[in-house]
Design a protein around this nucleic acid. Sequence first.
RNA 1: GGUGAGGUAGCUCAGCUGGUUAGAGCGUGGCACUCAUAAUGCCGAGGUCGAGGGUUCGAGUCCCUCUCUCACCA
Length: 693
Amino acid sequence: MTQRRRILVTSALPYANGPLHLGHILEAIQTDIWVRFQKLRGHECYYVCADDTHGTPIMLKAQSEGISAEQLIAQINVEHQRDFKDMLIGMDNFGSTHSAENRQFCDRMYLMHRDAGYIDRRMVRQAYDESAKMFLPDRYVKGTCPVCATPDQYGDSCENCGSTYTPADLKNPLSAVSGTIPVWRESEHYFFKLSAFEQPLLNWVRNGGVQESVARKLDEWFSQGLRDWDISRDAPYFGFEIPDAPLKYFYVWFDAPIGYLASFAQLCERSDLKFEEFFNADSTAELHHFIGKDILYFHTLFWPAVLQAAAMRRPTSVHAHGFLTINGQKMSKSRGTFITARRYLQNFPSEYLRYYFAAKLGSGIDDMDMNLDEFTTRLNSEIVGKLVNIASRCAGFITKNSAGRLAGNLEDQGLFDAFVAAGENIAQAYERRDMASAVRDIMALADRANQYVDSRKPWMLAKDAAKLPQVQLVCTQGLNLFRILMIYLQPVLPQMAARAASFLQESSWEWRDAAKPLLASSIHPYEPLAVRLDPKAVQNLIEPETAAASAALPTGAARSAAATGTVHAGASSATTLAATSVEGNLISIDDFSRIDLRVAKILSAELIAGADKLLKLRVDLGELGHREIFAGIRAAYDPVSLVGRLVVVVANLEPRKMRFGTSQGMMLAAGPGGKDIFALSADSGATPGMRVK
RNA sequence: GGUGAGGUAGCUCAGCUGGUUAGAGCGUGGCACUCAUAAUGCCGAGGUCGAGGGUUCGAGUCCCUCUCUCACCA
């Protein structure tokens, strides 16, 4: 066994101005699989992340919503944490760049930079909005491209001809904040002397700090010579004030990566981990950052230099991945393919997405396409048809003929050994983040396992009572092969693996457990570990989502969101919705009367295999008859306790197809979700079918 | 415009340092089986490897040109 490594891992900080989408989740899943793999291998591995909360966009967004920036980022933080958790992203700490710890680190590192002579001050001419009384970032100045004369372009580059320039070059510039014509003002800015770190950075890049193709990309910047980096912004700005410079703030990209340290420091505070052991210049722990290729610049040039200038260790490596496209195209709100994490979770189990992404994730920086038709067919075929099928087809015989007891030895030791031996390649693939390769190998083994069962034909043997011991041997072999596969897949499918382990009456698995066969022990009767997906259900993922529709009529996403007690508007944040629903969306009594609310009596409530949030309810609506309704209240209510209760139901909602059937209405409940969901009920005396008005 | 990544069967992708008839999964056609969530197994059809040129005994695999897609440009 290799030496036990100490590893700290991060994924990029999501910006706190909106909900997580599948692009964020792709990165989080890649990171999480790698982290779970390291833990499974017995290494000491921690995963931290945080919200990126500073900068002009968040300041302006909060203003437009009439709340403070602090309120905005607090709300977003709750949403982000919930989405990550539901995607089974096992972060050890999720913080915020707007934390006391982060402020301390920023101040301390900046002062070290300054004292070591790495900070310069220079005058910078910048667009200023006199009506909004603020300096304008490049993206907030719009005008006509000086090269090709395309109107309405941002201040840094032209979308039409691709030229890059500065806002001062734009013709007819206007402030995107107020619409007024900006003026040009000088202001003193603070610069980090990146140029002083050219040689060490080059060494770091060339010696395994990044993937090869990334190193080639970075050569572009090295060959031009590194420019010093402007790390300050003028007030008003939402961020941290620079300690020795009143009204000057740290640029958001200065404090964002430092947020990694702050988040890890929070983890250290509540455990016995020592921050210094991970971040002192001579640390032997590993530090890995997973990021999208769009932010390479900050992570491979500024960040290692900023750390080094503060006498801290540099990252072991920065791993960049490509972007996610949906059905071959960029995610787009207008096409409805801007799929939020929440919207996905309302329709499908998280592990299906984890598997799908893993099956397509290489170690390079190529973009990944999520083809929605492929998604369901692949999941149904590989997970249900092949993988889970192995257990499903073997377990019955063991339960029926062998009293749930496995045989005492293997039927085909050679095949078992081959499965164990294949683990080394699979582990190496995980290690180099080539999840697709790992999954390919694992599924090839699954094919061999099915071939094995087919070749032994236990269903034929079982017809002859004298051959029952043989059946037990074959099925014991099959289940052992299945067990190895589930151990290998545990980083990708943590929940399914846990359920498989408990089916085999084991408590937990480490990677090396794969080599030890499970013999002469009892197993539980098999219960389905995965449910087949309805291919048509993916359409629910790409319906256009608009805040207006969600707020006005509870259909589609908003309906199931309401059923789980959350208000979530997809493309826009929950806070947008909260603000507009009070001010802008008053409805008339006629509008209200269109909603047919009824008292309903719950006749039965049951758990649904494969759905960890839903309950299937059968309700009595009196004159309207009986209905089947799915409600996202499983975490809050025991099915048994619901039977007989009088609740309130929307009776004229268009039926909605879900994976498990059609929901013919919506049960009303209040609360933020999870365990905090509170069903509305009618006082005794009400009878099923009564109108609520 | 500059730089990087990519263009391989209907779809999504493997093809390591160049070497016999270019692979996988899904989909598709046929057969078998019935233990398994209409699951599984076997056989088959499907590609002039973006275009053109070059190096080589031999090139998806190296070089040049062109073309299309995507990304980044502090």
